[in-house]
Amino acid sequence: MRWGLTGAAVAFLGLMLILPLVVVFATAFSKGWSGFSAGLADSDSFAAVKLTLIAAVISVPLNIIFGLAAAWAIAKFEFRGKSLLITVIDLPFSVSPIIAGMLFVLLFGAQGWLGDWLAARNMRIIFAVPGIVLATVFVTVPFVARELIPLMQAQGREEEEAALSLGAGGWQAFFRVTIPNIKWALVYGVILCNARALGEFGAVSVVSGHIQGVTNTMPLQIEVLYNEYKFVPAFAMASLLVLMALLTLVLKHWIEWRSARSLAQIGSGPDRAIAPPR
């Protein structure tokens, strides 16, 4: 029974998770190391990597600041409409990526609400870098906030109150007490946010316009290469994203392991008898 169940679970995970990873590397290296590196050495691919990094470098910090602000307001204060606010923060998770991209086309596209206004000023958002950044920001809004909110709610506000009662200012309490208490959840949220920012496909696909070397991010470039039957370069670039994903998983589990260990420490100290003061 036990080995049968284990075997079935391992087979399922092997088929669904491990095999796809193996295929990526097998195809990427099917023409050896030289094929792999040649696949990445193309200038369009280089531009795609650069654009992907730009989108992440802008959207991740924006959502870190947002996540910290939202978590502070929600976890440290009582106000009406709080659970509605939490639902709204999670909304981008429920919006299909295609629809997410489409929202920005409707706002800023040629036929969009601000289309004429933008065209008159010779500004482009859709089919240009700003649109890609916007779409990436939208799909990554919840990541940091949703890691921080439950943790900060559970921590309460006693430590911050203690800091204030000892004379600390608001920012001092935030940087010296709050941040150290949430740092691992923050890192966790950031790596998940980053993984999504680097890997977003649907939303970015709608607003990008697929101009090679200009508005193609890594996932879009993979699509182009794949559709042109350039399998080795497509999988070579995919393998970079796979490495990013695996690194994300390793970091995530390392953080979980760390926090589990520090939790186990709490309350383990012996209650030792004390002598009265001399």
Binding site: L17, P20, L21, V23, V24, L192, A195, L198, G199, E200, F201, G202, M218, P219, L220, I222, E223, Y226, A234, F235, A238, L241, V242, M244, A245, L246, T248, L249, K252
Partner: peptide, 13 residues
């Protein structure tokens, strides 16, 4: 893994 792996990569693979 499916949380961390870009969907396009999953798609082609």
């Amino acid at each position: 893994l499916p949380f961390a792996l870009p969907t396009a990569v999953a798609g082609i693979s």
